[in-house]
Nucleic acid binder design. Structure first.
Length: 226
DNA sequence: CGTTTTTGACCCGCGC
DNA sequence: GCGCGGGTCAAAAACG
């Protein structure tokens, strides 16, 4: 497959992702324009009235996993946990430990299918991953939020050792947002699912064995953090 | 001892 | 205006 074919295919895979990101962006702008201002300039508990928070573009996706907090190459610090209405599972709030990075993520289990973890990323990392080399997992995030669609993306999805998409054709490979979560725990399997494929009962989903979808793509040596 | 997690309190937006 | 629910803060506890 030639490189232009590669990119066209990747773009095609990304189209639902683009729509999702645009929707999230529009929504966040509409609702919380002033909120971000306060969040940036009044980080602490000085909360003046008349200033609203704004949320950065958010991107959510579902991952089939046994563990709640999935490894994604970044270090996160938990800053809150809340019970969610109509769900028996609490929602956890994480912030990137890099002081200059404002990325947050929310992690919650699907009340319909407890084996599915819903992860929502907000913002964009301004630094490299901790455990992964540059060009690794965070590239897709940059593509998702920066919409640069750098030529590196196909490399990410289909690394050198694999010249075609993984055989999980029923799973949209595109929704690998900033930190494509993957589970390093050997006991669990994970596979990212597009939110547009939210039907957890979809029996057509093909779950890659052992290390999950990413495990099928990323060399195992690369997945091991130091 | 530094870092991370826990958890109750607080703030804010939204719907009624 | 009030209540509810989501999101965040920050002190204390736990952990390595």
């Amino acid at each position: 497959m030639t490189l232009p074919d590669y990119r066209a295919l990747t773009l095609l895979f990304h189209s639902p992702l683009i729509l999702l990101c645009l929707l999230a962006l529009a929504e966040s702008r509409r609702r919380n324009r002033l909120r971000l201002f306060r969040e940036i300039f009044c980080r602490r508990k000085v909360k003046k009235k008349g200033q609203k928070r704004i949320r950065q573009p958010r991107f959510a996706f579902m991952t089939k996993s046994e563990v709640d907090h999935l490894e994604d190459g970044y270090r996160w610090r938990k800053y809150g946990q809340k019970a969610v209405k109509n769900s028996p599972f609490p929602r956890s709030y994480y912030r990137c430990t890099n002081s200059k990075c404002t990325v947050k993520k929310r992690v919650e289990r699907s009340c319909e299918d407890p084996s599915i973890v819903i992860t929502t990323y907000e913002g964009q990392h301004c630094h490299h991953t901790v455990g992964f080399p540059r060009g690794g997992l965070n590239i897709a995030h940059e593509a998702a939020f920066g919409s640069q669609f750098s030529p590196q993306i196909p490399q990410f999805f289909y690394p050198d050792h694999q010249t075609h998409p993984p055989p999980t054709t029923n799973i949209n490979p595109a929704p690998t947002p900033n930190d494509q979560p993957h589970d390093l725990a050997p006991s669990s399997s994970s596979n990212a699912l597009s939110l547009e494929q939210q039907d957890p009962t979809n029996s057509n989903l093909q779950v890659p064995s052992d290390e999950g979808l990413l495990g099928a793509i990323i060399p195992s040596a690369m997945m091991r953090r130091t």
